[in-house]
């Protein structure tokens, strides 16, 4: 029997619309529920070694689902179970600060991603090499071009070796050269990681790597299954 590594049971999540204390109180009192339902009763089971793609229109809850799986947002109802070390790859270079050097930023980003100091020092030569920054690594980040920042971010982020890898639309940034390089690197990570969940709009890529695809629509799971079939479902949605 295949081992389940991610189990999402009846997960629902609402984003509050009310920001003001007063309107929050009144909505509590008159039991009016007009929160935005980001996830509505999601049930998904993902097995070890699978590569899963998630597709859907903007605002259908794809990213929210990844955030629930990685523990950023707790679900309102239901529960999400995970086996193993999990990592969400989203927005390369989170927490970068312009007035510190490339090295310091790499260290900061690495520690945000959960590395210890010794792990970071060990990975550092490989990070510099991949980022192609050379001596520039000691310069403040504000002197970097956008492409250099992206390379540094990817170099650090792709050094992680999680058992479960979640990827949220990080492909396709920068110039064509880097785009190819980053895509290749992420493909390497996908092959290296045990289990992968990818949110993306590039259906061609998804059809190539995924074992199954999940189509989400308005906070619900529309269908799960064979990549080609699900992508066809997506075009039937409209």
């Amino acid at each position: 029997m295949r081992q389940t590594v991610i189990k999402i049971k009846d997960v629902s999540l609402e984003y509050p619309r009310h920001r003001h204390l007063l309107s929050m109180l009144t909505s509590k009192i008159i039991k009016q529920r007009n929160n935005f339902k980001a996830l509505n009763n999601i049930n998904i089971e993902i097995f070890k070694g699978e590569v899963i793609g998630i597709i859907g229109n903007n605002g259908c809850g794809k990213s929210t689902l990844l955030r629930v799986i990685s523990g950023i947002i707790p679900p309102d109802r239901g529960e999400c179970l995970v086996a193993g070390k999990i990592s969400l790859l989203a927005g390369l270079g989170t927490g970068f600060s312009n007035h510190q050097t490339g090295r310091e930023n790499a260290m900061l980003y690495g520690s945000i991603l959960g590395y210890s100091e010794s792990q970071m020092l060990e990975k550092f030569p490989a990070i510099i090499e991949f980022s192609e920054l050379g001596d520039f690594i000691e310069e403040p980040l504000r002197t970097y071009s956008a492409g250099m920042k992206a390379r540094l971010g990817l170099a650090v982020a792709s050094a992680i070796e999680p058992e479960i890898l979640l990827i949220d639309e990080v492909l396709g940034v920068g110039d064509p050269n880097f785009k190819e390089k980053s895509t290749n690197r992420i493909m390497q990570m996908v092959e290296g990681a045990g289990t992968v969940v990818i949110v993306s709009h590039s259906f061609g890529m998804l059809a190539g790597v995924c074992d199954r695809i999940i189509l989400m629509d308005k906070g619900r799971v529309h269908s799960i299954g064979e990549p080609k079939e699900i992508i066809r479902n997506y075009y039937d949605l409209e």
């Binding site: 590594v5 629930v68 799986i69 990685s70 529960e79 179970l81 086996a83 999990i86």
Partner: peptide, 9 residues
């Protein structure tokens, strides 16, 4: 044996 299923967060 890759850890057991644990609730996230």
């Amino acid at each position: 044996s890759v850890s057991e299923l644990m609730p996230v967060g």
